[in-house]
Amino acid sequence: MTMAATAPFAPGVEEEGVAHRAKARALPGEGGIWLFIAGDLSIFSQLFLTYFYYRAQQPALYSAAQQHLDQGLGMLNTALMLTSSLFVALAVHAARRGMAGWPSRLYWLAALCGIGFGVIKIFEYGAKISHGITLTTNDMFMFYFILTGTHMLHVMMGIGVLLFLANYCRGTGDGRFTPAALRTIECGSLFWHVVDLLWIILFALLYLIR
């Protein structure tokens, strides 16, 4: 926008500015969902900063506790998250192209990956609890349970959104969506990508950086 405003009076440059602006307009979803995402990321940033601050106080305790985290299951969950995000991206693509039937199927697949993620998480939590490790064991496990638990809450909300979208996309016979319907689809899909993004950060933060 500033580019168009400050562009010198040369027609070519001016047009370029307009094209640039038009491209910026093509932000998926609507403004509000980006505010929501920014808010969500800022909360997680605050959680991560708090984690780093407390970790710096007693790094040995954190490193020792982190040895107990199951990197294999974490890796499997990362793969499920990335796969589900791929399905969601394909579903949006299919919805934009008017490929009848595909968006709904792809959202189902993404939701199944999300459910798989949740099931693995239950096993992971179960293993911790059966070893007597809970959210009050020590500071590291406090962060482990609260950070992954907050993320799990997002996953559950996200699965709800994906199932809603799977149902939402079923209605159209010819696979064509109105711009308003596409915006709804994009908003829901964006949320799932954020859930995916947050897991990648969490996985690196808790499981990998020891």
């Binding site: 609507e30 509000g32 969902i33 505010l35 929501f36 808010g39 969500d40 809450l153």
Partner: peptide, 16 residues
């Protein structure tokens, strides 16, 4: 404004 709707849902989650 619509964004206030998103903000409320965000705050709902934060309050947990």
């Amino acid at each position: 404004p619509r964004w206030l709707g998103y903000l409320n849902i965000w705050y709902a989650v934060v309050s947990l």
